[in-house]
């Protein structure tokens, strides 16, 4: 296996310092979080950054905080393992915790960060659909100060985001959610572990006592150039009573509006069909059996 090329490494102690290094050194550098995408790119894709700016020593970029206004802030450098095991995330959004638990192995999740998963902008990024369904925002800091974007505006294409080279993703903010919100993430992959999603489907629903959907958010991974919302499918169920037949129609709509490609994992046709089936299942699972589940139960929930 090929080795990384020589490079310089910096470990700034503030965001300002980190941005300043990139400004001074110019193009050809990369930020480093957990390195589980970056070092792979150096070893497998011939990427050879001149310098690397390690963000792990910048204070306050990691950790999960329940804010007074009901929102949840997740620092960009928070590891997937921290998200997966966070009591606050498990209690409020078990399907988000589960989507973090779907990433790689424990060894990978001890390094992989939630910010890196977003900044790398892979269409199959496992945590993206759940965050899109929760209408999360991202905080970005740069020379000109801080700005906030919706996650949907942040992704621009495979590996492309709205960030400038010297900008740093500092946090993910999940707005206050309705107390009745339920959700589900299904990572569809024929392997139980250690594979990327062929299709990822996240749903977040606000249901009343009669299973009427007061709000519905459906987000898809691995089936378009960026993780995407499925607004037409959402419109099918909004303000309706969720039945199996309605979930099927929403699935059909999601299958129509996604834009999958064929690759080593799957053909576009198969992905489209699985978007239909998994969307239906995710909606019914969310409505019927919410709550955290053991991984052994996840596979049953898929079929």
């Amino acid at each position: 296996m090929r080795r990384p090329e020589p490079l310089e490494i910096f470990q700034p102690a503030s965001i300002r310092e980190a941005s300043a290094i990139v400004k001074e050194k110019g193009p050809g550098g990369r930020f480093l979080a957990g390195g589980t995408d970056l070092v792979i790119a150096m070893k497998e894709k011939g990427l050879s950054p001149k310098y690397v700016v390690d963000l792990k020593r910048v204070p306050n970029l990691s950790g999960i905080c329940e804010e007074a206004d009901g929102s949840l802030t997740i620092g960009a450098l928070t590891t997937m393992r921290e998200v997966e095991t966070s009591p606050a995330v498990c209690k409020r959004f078990p399907f988000l915790a589960q989507s973090a638990a779907e990433v790689g192995s424990i060894q990978i999740r001890n390094r992989a960060t939630i910010g890196g998963n977003m900044a790398n902008a892979t269409p199959s990024a496992d945590v993206a659909p759940a965050l899109l369904a929760l209408e999360a925002g991202v905080k970005i800091a740069g020379a000109a100060g801080e700005r906030t974007l919706n996650l949907g505006e942040f992704f621009r294409g495979p590996g492309q985001t709205a960030m400038l080279p010297e900008e740093i993703l500092t946090a993910i903010v999940i707005p206050a959610a309705h107390p009745n919100l339920v959700g589900e993430y299904i990572k569809f992959s024929p392997r139980e572990m250690m594979d990327l999603a062929y299709v990822g489907v996240a749903v977040a629903l606000v249901l009343d006592g009669k299973k009427r959907c007061d709000a519905a958010r459906i987000a898809l991974g691995a089936v378009s150039p960026t993780p995407m919302r499925a607004p037409k499918a959402e419109a099918v169920i909004e303000k309706q009573i969720l039945t199996e037949e309605l979930a099927q129609r929403a699935g059909d709509e999601a299958a129509r509006e996604c834009k999958p490609i064929s690759d080593v994992r799957s053909s576009a046709e198969y992905r489209r069909a699985m978007v239909g089936a998994m969307t239906k299942r995710a909606l019914l699972n969310a409505a019927e059996r919410p709550g955290p589940v053991a991984w052994t139960e996840r596979r049953e929930r898929r079929y």
């Binding site: 490494i9 470990q11 390195g35 070092v39 792979i40 792990k56 060894q107 001890n110």
Partner: peptide, 10 residues
């Protein structure tokens, strides 16, 4: 962690 994905410089 996987030591094959970690740069010594950090």
């Amino acid at each position: 962690v996987n030591s094959c994905l970690i740069l010594s410089g950090e």
